[in-house]
Simulated assay, not measured.
Amino acid sequence: MIEIPKNVKGLIFDLDGTIADTMQYHFESWRKAVTPYGIDFNAELFMSLTGKPRTATILKLNELFGTTMNPIEVGAIKSSHFKTLVESTKEISIVADVIRKYHQVLPMSIGTGSTRSGAQKTLEVINMQQYFDIVVTSTDIINPKPHPETFLKCAELMKVAPKDCVVFEDGILGMQAAESVGMHVIDVTNYFTMEFTF
């Protein structure tokens, strides 16, 4: 069981790769969408972008590779491919067990770079939507991770000071976001192995 630091008053969870084992599906979907543009979308590149919303990811790839991908068109390809895979998503049990243990004990929220509809679908597939009244998505913020807006909004809605929150994350951008405002961070990748297959 993951240990929660003492005196923590609120729990914030990233979704993809933290509660839901979706990262392989996101990886495959991104590869399908951007490989035609000559981008070698490998696991290292993927992990460096984890937490960014779809449009921001495509704009960053354009910047890195000098491509001119249309965020709407390429994003639609990525999204439609992901939808063909999402139904077989499983929970990440070591994190899901924390959620079940602290449900109605501490305030909990989700802070994700996913869209509102994408987050709702993923939570339904893993049957965890009943644990979260507060879900902050890319649809609800202006500045995505590594900016802390997502997590600050979670804290505000939970009525918990940022310093009293712990954030569960798998992505470097999310960890940076949480640490920048003095939140505790639990790197969930210390508790399970994430590998990507091509």
Rank of each mutant, 00 (worst) to 15 (best):
T112M: 06
I99G: 08
Q120M: 09
T193P: 04
A161R: 09
V185E: 09
E179I: 02
A155M: 02
L173V: 06
E169C: 06
V105L: 09
K60F: 03
D164W: 00
V8A: 05
K163Y: 06
V181W: 15
L173R: 14
P36K: 14
L59E: 14
A161V: 01
L11E: 13
T22D: 03
F27K: 11
M128S: 03
S138P: 04
T68M: 11
D97Q: 13
T89K: 04
T89I: 08
I12A: 07
P144D: 03
Q129K: 15
K78S: 05
A96M: 08
D21L: 01
T84L: 12
N143M: 09
Q120S: 08
P146M: 04
T139A: 12
I172F: 08
Y102E: 03
L157W: 03
T189S: 10
P53M: 03
I77C: 04
I19W: 07
T112S: 14
D97H: 07
M108C: 08
V86Y: 15
E3L: 12
T197K: 15
T112R: 04
F198W: 06
A177S: 14
G111T: 04
T55N: 12
Q129H: 14
K121D: 12
D133E: 15
S48N: 13
L85W: 10
M128Q: 07
D16C: 09
H184Y: 15
I134L: 07
V166G: 08
E87P: 00
M108Q: 15
P144G: 03
I19Y: 08
A96G: 12
I92A: 06
Q130G: 03
E179M: 05
S138L: 04
M194F: 09
N70L: 09
V74P: 05
G10P: 02
F65Q: 00
V160D: 01
P107N: 10
E28Y: 11
A161T: 02
L173F: 07
D21W: 01
V86P: 01
I186S: 09
F192Q: 04
V105S: 05
Y131G: 00
T67H: 14
P71M: 02
T68F: 06
N70T: 10
D170G: 09
V95L: 07
T150D: 03
F82V: 01
V95G: 08
D97S: 13
E149C: 00
Q120F: 05
T50H: 12
Y37W: 12
K159I: 03
T150I: 09
F46D: 11
H147F: 07
D40Y: 14
V135Y: 08
I99A: 11
M183T: 05
K153F: 02
